[in-house]
């Protein structure tokens, strides 16, 4: 339907027609410079989904960087004698005994605050790592094609075929000391495939665009074409996939820690806490529920964030 497309195009170009007959081409005088990024930001700012998730993510981020702001208690102070599975004291907001104590007699509230760090670190760093790896591999495969594409795509397929959690478990069991970095490494090692596939797909589409042909016709170098033309246009779908995947990595970390293969004490992690409290559901359900809810809220905020970003960057997918 040619007219509707033309319509959206003409409404995109802002400002009234023929207001300023400055030159021979007295057309719509575009208002302020408006990049596609600023358009996306304009959409994002008005999306309640984005605002809610952003507030939550900010809170979680601050929690992970400055846990001391939220509680004076230490998550590792255990007092079995006094606090073993002590019930929450709902009136004591933000006090160590507010949400009660766990089986080791540690403040659940403090562990809730300190547990954010592991989740956010794993989520963010794995996402950055897989985005970079996936982008590089996907762009090389998509741009050069031929045997490079064949080789890289087959490698991607091999990694893609490995079940994510099982694969991470196998890698983690080979390490004796399982710090946050080890978990990050193992998740990054397996997680880049979806990004690589998305990047490859969008690079293949974009490299055929006339503006890339135009740059080639000008004699632009491969590096220039890749960085100035292909990357900025291929990155939007990659960002969408990456932000949505971020929640998944946080969930994966919790899963692995719950299974006892991810993070281990003394690292504070919600997954470990859920695992430690799994027998207490009938006695003191809050011990189990609170860290579980934290995992859910965190994963959900990143998923919502990813969704909002997708809507802003790719309105057609709505």
């Amino acid at each position: 339907m040619p007219d509707t497309t033309a319509l959206t195009k003409s409404t995109d170009a802002s400002a009234a027609a023929a207001q300023t007959p400055t030159t021979t081409d007295s057309g719509p005088a575009p208002g302020k410079p408006r990049s596609l990024w600023s358009d996306a930001w304009h959409d994002l700012r008005r999306n309640p989904l984005f605002l809610v998730s952003m507030v939550l993510i900010l809170l979680l981020t601050v929690m992970s960087i400055f846990p001391g702001l939220f509680t004076s208690a230490s998550p590792r102070d255990a007092n079995l004698a006094e606090h073993y599975l002590q019930k929450p004291n709902w009136g004591h907001f933000f006090a160590p005994d507010w949400l009660g104590y766990d089986v080791q007699g540690r403040s659940i509230y403090a562990r809730l605050i300190y547990g954010a760090r592991a989740s956010i670190m794993v989520g963010v760093i794995v996402t950055i790592a897989v985005t970079i790896t996936g982008l590089v591999i996907g762009m090389l495969a998509g741009y050069f094609g031929g045997w490079i594409d064949t080789v890289l795509s087959r490698i991607t397929d091999v990694f893609f075929g490995v079940p994510f959690i099982v694969g991470a478990m196998v890698i983690l069991t080979t390490f004796e000391e399982r710090s946050v970095w080890v978990v990050i490494l193992s998740l990054s090692f397996l997680g880049w495939t979806s990004i690589a596939r998305v990047a490859r797909g969008s690079v293949i589409t974009i490299k055929q665009a006339d503006y890339v042909v135009a740059a080639k016709a000008l004699g632009a170098s491969t590096t220039r074409i890749m960085t100035r033309h292909i990357l900025p246009n291929a990155i939007a779908p990659v960002i969408v996939v990456a932000t949505i995947a971020l929640g998944g990595y946080i969930a994966a970390e919790a899963t692995l820690s719950f299974l006892g293969i991810g993070l281990a004490e003394p690292t504070v992690s919600w997954g470990i806490d859920v695992s430690a409290a799994k027998d207490q559901l009938r006695n003191v359900p809050t011990v189990l529920i609170i860290p579980s809810v934290m995992v859910s809220i965190t994963v959900l905020s990143f998923l919502m964030f990813g969704d909002a970003v997708r809507n802003a960057l790719d309105p057609k997918m709505r």
Binding site: K9, S35, W37, D210, Y211, A215, A217, A220, P232, N233
Partner: peptide
């Protein structure tokens, strides 16, 4: 030898400003 393309919607990089698009030839040469 330069070229003018058919589709004005795909021949300009949507992520670049008009100044960058017209100035790109000078960056390359």
């Amino acid at each position: 030898i330069q070229m003018v393309f058919q589709d004005p919607y795909t021949s300009l990089n949507p992520r670049m400003t008009v100044g960058d698009i017209i100035g790109e030839p000078f960056d390359i040469h």
